[in-house]
């Protein structure tokens, strides 16, 4: 059955503020389809963001929505989830928001394994503030603050969160909305901290400075840089250079979840009291 997007959207706020062709649209639609497939009530969902282009997404979704400060979405989301472990908390963030200014919260949310789903829209640039290089801008790429080419080594976001202890790590891209929905749904149902890194396009700020100014061209460029997890397993490190494995990269269902563990603390404390 076709998904009724309007059931989840605050249509009275359309048109949205994103650039035509922006990957965020594809991502938000994938998130909606994932919600719809799980048949969760929007009353039970909190959708939280920080600052940047992604931060505007919660405003368009008809649920409990919170647009917070730069980089801090996960800390607010942690407060919500920890106060109400019975509800669903989803965070959307960008590469700058999540891995630069919010990097500390990111690694600690991973370590804590609190049951929050984080979607990181990685478009390799600070879009909203005017195209400055981010922690995921490739070496050599041009940005508003790297007119001579970027010299910073980028993060591999998925590897970073895996290393920090996230128990569900997936990478998708805007060239495949179907796969993306599946990966997000997997994250939503996973009990623990889950991260879905989405390779996305900012043709406006990144593409125009790096000779791929068209949205479709940039999405195609991103698609071509991806290989499936299964393919990647068969490839040499040489062959994998500049390629991104997409799919479910890591899942650990053994580790206990933070709120569950804290419930045991409460039980213990009340017994001892």
């Amino acid at each position: 059955m076709a998904v009724s997007y309007t059931k989840y959207l605050r249509m009275y706020h359309m048109p949205h503020m994103w650039c035509p062709g922006c990957g965020i649209g594809i991502i938000v639609k994938a998130i909606i389809r994932a919600f719809d497939a799980l048949d969760w009530s929007t009353d039970d969902l909190a959708f939280v963001s920080g600052i940047g282009c992604t931060s505007r997404a919660p405003g368009y979704l008809d649920m409990n929505t919170l647009h917070t400060t730069h980089g801090r979405a996960l800390s607010f989301a942690t407060g919500i989830k920890f106060a109400r472990p019975d509800k669903h908390v989803v965070v959307i963030s960008g590469d700058g928001d999540a891995t630069a200014i919010g990097g500390n919260h990111l690694i600690h949310a991973c370590r804590r394994n609190i049951d929050i789903t984080l979607v990181i829209v990685n478009n390799n640039i600070y879009g909203m503030t005017g195209g400055q290089y981010s922690p995921t801008t490739p070496v050599g790429a041009r940005a508003a603050t790297s007119p001579w080419g970027n010299i910073d080594i980028p993060f591999n976001v998925s590897e970073l969160v895996k290393g920090a202890g996230a128990t569900y790590v997936a990478r998708g891209h805007v060239g495949s909305g179907v796969q993306l929905e599946r990966l997000i749904r997997g994250g939503l149902t996973h009990k623990g901290f889950s991260v879905i890194e989405v390779l996305s396009n900012c043709h406006t700020q990144y593409g125009r400075r790096n000779r791929i100014p068209d949205a479709i061209d940039l999405i195609e460029h991103i698609s071509k840089s991806t290989v499936s997890v299964r393919q990647a397993e068969k490839m040499s490190p040489e062959e994998l250079k500049d390629k991104y494995a997409v799919g479910l990269l890591h899942q650990d269902t053994e580790r206990t979840e933070y709120c569950d563990d804290y419930n045991k603390v409460i039980e213990h404390a009340q017994l001892e009291r």
Binding site: R72, S75, T78, G79, I80, K81, F82
Partner: peptide, 11 residues
């Protein structure tokens, strides 16, 4: 983060 968390819980 501590400040963010209490605001989230307050909501």
């Amino acid at each position: 983060a501590a400040m963010g968390a209490i605001i989230g819980a307050s909501l």
